[in-house]
Amino acid sequence: MKILNRNLIIMSAIVVITTVSAAILNSCTVSKKVESKSGAQLWAENCQRCHNTPSPSSFSPEQWETIGMHMQSRALITDKERDKIVAFLKQ
């Protein structure tokens, strides 16, 4: 019973912390410093955190659109940041 209660407390704490964090995070706006960055700069900063950055010529404009949507959730970037990066890569 004690173990059950402890688990219930842990799980409840996770749910509460996550919900509160999500609410706070969703209310945050992108800082001006990030918003003023170019697509090239955002591409260099966000992609290389996890992997080598392929050159823009590595994929077609249509492929970059799909890659942009796929990688957005992994890199945790905003729609605006993704659009800037994809626009730069499609040039």
Binding site: M11, I14, I17, T18, S21, S31, K33, V34, E45, N46, R49, L76
Partner: peptide, 17 residues
């Protein structure tokens, strides 16, 4: 099983997580 992770990127160039 519940899994949760929170990440903090303190620098504007996202170089540290």
């Amino acid at each position: 099983t519940i899994t949760a992770r929170i990440g903090w990127l303190p620098l504007s160039n996202s170089s540290l997580e």
